[in-house]
Amino acid sequence: VDNKFNKEQQNAFYEILHLPNLNEEQRNAFIQSLKDDPSQSANLLAEAKKLNDAQA
């Protein structure tokens, strides 16, 4: 993981990586967004979790 991520951002990265119901395309999009703007990690994680739950 890129060293410019802080602890919260790293946690978001790993959580998104391991959400079971996202397809690869969705997962990659969230990860790319996280890399583009790490400050949005909490929002991105919340969105990813919502999508993950919706696809459960």
Rank of each mutant, 00 (worst) to 15 (best):
V1S: 13
V1T: 11
V1N: 04
V1A: 06
V1C: 10
V1M: 13
D2K: 00
D2M: 09
D2H: 04
D2S: 10
N3L: 01
K4E: 11
K4T: 12
K4I: 11
K4P: 08
F5N: 03
F5L: 05
F5C: 03
F5K: 01
F5H: 03
F5S: 01
N6V: 02
N6D: 12
K7E: 11
K7W: 06
K7R: 04
E8W: 03
E8M: 01
E8K: 01
E8Q: 02
E8P: 03
E8I: 02
Q9S: 02
Q9A: 05
Q9H: 03
Q10W: 12
Q10T: 03
Q10L: 08
N11H: 08
N11C: 13
N11L: 15
N11G: 13
A12Y: 03
A12H: 11
A12N: 04
A12G: 04
F13N: 04
Y14W: 09
Y14T: 13
E15F: 01
E15K: 05
E15H: 13
E15M: 12
I16N: 00
I16H: 00
I16G: 01
I16M: 08
I16T: 01
I16F: 04
I16Y: 00
L17A: 12
H18C: 11
H18S: 13
H18I: 13
H18R: 14
H18A: 12
H18P: 01
L19P: 00
L19I: 03
L19R: 00
L19V: 01
P20W: 06
P20N: 10
P20S: 13
P20D: 11
N21C: 15
N21E: 04
N21R: 05
N21D: 09
N23K: 15
N23R: 07
E24G: 07
E24S: 14
E25M: 12
E25Y: 13
E25I: 09
Q26W: 04
Q26F: 05
Q26A: 06
Q26Y: 03
R27M: 08
R27W: 01
N28I: 11
N28P: 01
N28C: 11
N28Y: 09
A29V: 08
A29Y: 12
A29T: 12
A29S: 07
F30M: 13
F30V: 03
F30C: 03
F30Q: 01
F30T: 01
I31M: 14
I31W: 05
I31N: 03
I31K: 04
Q32D: 14
Q32C: 10
Q32E: 14
Q32P: 00
Q32I: 12
Q32H: 14
Q32W: 10
S33F: 15
S33R: 11
L34D: 00
L34V: 09
L34S: 02
L34T: 03
L34Q: 03
L34F: 11
K35G: 10
D36M: 06
D36P: 01
D36H: 11
D37M: 10
D37S: 05
D37N: 07
D37A: 10
P38S: 11
P38W: 04
P38D: 05
S39V: 09
S39K: 12
S39P: 07
S39W: 09
Q40Y: 13
S41Y: 14
S41W: 10
S41N: 03
A42H: 14
A42F: 11
A42D: 11
A42T: 15
A42W: 13
A42C: 15
N43H: 07
L44E: 02
L44I: 08
L45Y: 10
L45R: 04
L45S: 10
L45F: 06
L45C: 11
A46W: 11
A46R: 05
E47F: 09
E47I: 14
E47K: 05
E47G: 06
E47D: 15
A48P: 00
A48C: 09
A48H: 00
A48D: 00
A48K: 00
A48E: 00
K49V: 10
K49N: 13
K49H: 13
K49L: 05
K49T: 04
K50T: 13
K50S: 11
K50F: 14
K50R: 09
K50Q: 13
K50N: 12
K50Y: 12
L51Y: 08
L51Q: 04
L51S: 07
L51W: 05
L51M: 11
N52Q: 03
N52F: 02
N52P: 01
N52L: 01
N52S: 06
D53M: 12
D53G: 06
D53R: 10
D53L: 15
D53I: 10
D53F: 15
A54Y: 15
A54E: 15
A54C: 12
A54N: 08
A54T: 15
A54M: 14
A54H: 12
Q55Y: 15
A56N: 15
A56D: 06
A56Y: 12
A56H: 09
A56F: 14
A56I: 13
